[in-house]
Simulated scan of single mutants.
Amino acid sequence: MLLSISLILIVGMSMAWLCQRLRLPGLMGMLATGMILGPYALDLLDADILGISEELRKIALIIILTRAGLGLDLAGLKKTGRPAFLMCFVPASFEVLGVILLGTRFMGLTVLEAAVLGAVLAAVSPAVVVPRMVRLMEEGYGKKEGIPQMILAGASVDDVYVIVLFSTFTGMMQGKGVSAVSFINIPVSILLGIILGLAAGSLLALFFKQVHIRDTSKVLIILSISLFLVAAEDMLATPIRFSSLIAVMFIGIGLQKKRGEAARRISVKYGKLWVAAEIFLFVLVGAAVNTGYLAQAGGRALLVILGALAFRMAGVALCLWGTKLGRRERLFVMLAYTPKATVQAAIGGIPLSMGLACGDTVLTAAVLAIVLTAPLGAFVMDLSYQKLLNRS
């Protein structure tokens, strides 16, 4: 395992540096590292580290979501209001509809099989989007208009909504029917996540005010609580649950509201943690990509993915209807809401493991979506944000 960790860090950093020298996003180098070192190519990564890959990816997501909460401009988020709320479910719904229409026509899927595929493809990747929105807030691009704040809020809820849809559609294919509780759980889990996160952040702010400890110790305390919340959500067997990732982000928001200066210092520490966490996240996502399936993907799957992205961008445009954002700013939001990676890597293989007839097709399309949209979305955002957004 030690050799695998060494390879992930050294090769991942080297490939990221090489891509940056070529004026490409470092993310592309990290994904390529995972695909090359992973089990479907050179197979140089230890089975033990691949076995805990999902947990390591979760830790990386926790780090960047906490950092996002610590730096989120609440005043800017309030300005967006309605669009931020609509971004949580409208673009994903449009994309699922697009996959149903295109998948039944071009891939020969049934409506329910296409709905399962749509639920896998419809999630935006917080692993790709969140770090870039954090950077935009730090540099001041689009911050006055609330653009990165709106995308952050929408992306964090979007995944919860899509995963509930996925569970519902796969349950229907297994003959379990539609559960009203599943759909009720969407707003309830979001609300409970916000409440838990704000409460934890406020209590931590009070604790840090009374007990003077080093910022590094504060980071470890926050990280421990965040890990506990994620584990608690996984262990819950109740029909109604809470969204732990939203809770993690709102810990940072709650702390920021009560102890702004401490939140800024802790955010700097989390930024240093992210340097290593980012490498592990994207290399391990790349390692989950089965390159053998790419040859089987074919033009039809590519056509469905591109068509579904057009539906998604139309959904984003609808969310922004009536806002004061200009054409360039709306274009950036539409482009920033397209990358896929983490959720597709996590759930893309589940229909196949369930024995569903569409399992191979879903996994193939999920892999193709990751390879196509994760580096391309990152590249477009990195290339365009300075040209399309105003700096405050």
Rank of each mutant, 00 (worst) to 15 (best):
L206H: 13
S6Y: 10
I59Q: 11
R105A: 11
T291V: 04
V285P: 05
L117R: 00
R105T: 15
I190Y: 02
G326T: 09
Q296I: 13
V230W: 09
L192E: 08
A297Q: 00
A262L: 15
L236V: 11
G348W: 01
V162F: 05
S6Q: 10
G197I: 08
A153L: 08
Y270S: 04
R241C: 06
R312L: 08
A47R: 14
W274P: 04
L152Q: 06
L22N: 03
Y293G: 05
V11P: 09
L331Q: 09
A345H: 03
L203E: 08
K218T: 02
L37Q: 04
S179Q: 15
L9I: 13
V124L: 07
S202D: 12
D234M: 12
L9W: 08
T104P: 07
Q296M: 14
G81K: 11
L303M: 12
G29L: 00
P187Y: 00
L309A: 11
S93F: 15
G51Q: 03
R82D: 10
A301Y: 03
E329I: 15
I49F: 02
G81W: 12
G326E: 13
L192K: 08
A123P: 05
R132Q: 10
D158R: 00
K209F: 14
T168P: 03
L2M: 14
E138P: 00
D215R: 15
M13N: 15
L121D: 01
R312Y: 03
L121A: 03
V96Y: 05
L229I: 13
L109N: 01
V211A: 01
G98N: 07
V289Q: 08
L255E: 05
L255K: 04
K257A: 10
K58C: 14
S224R: 13
I10P: 04
E139M: 12
S179G: 13
A357E: 14
L383Y: 15
L220T: 09
A317V: 10
A115Q: 06
S392Q: 11
M235S: 14
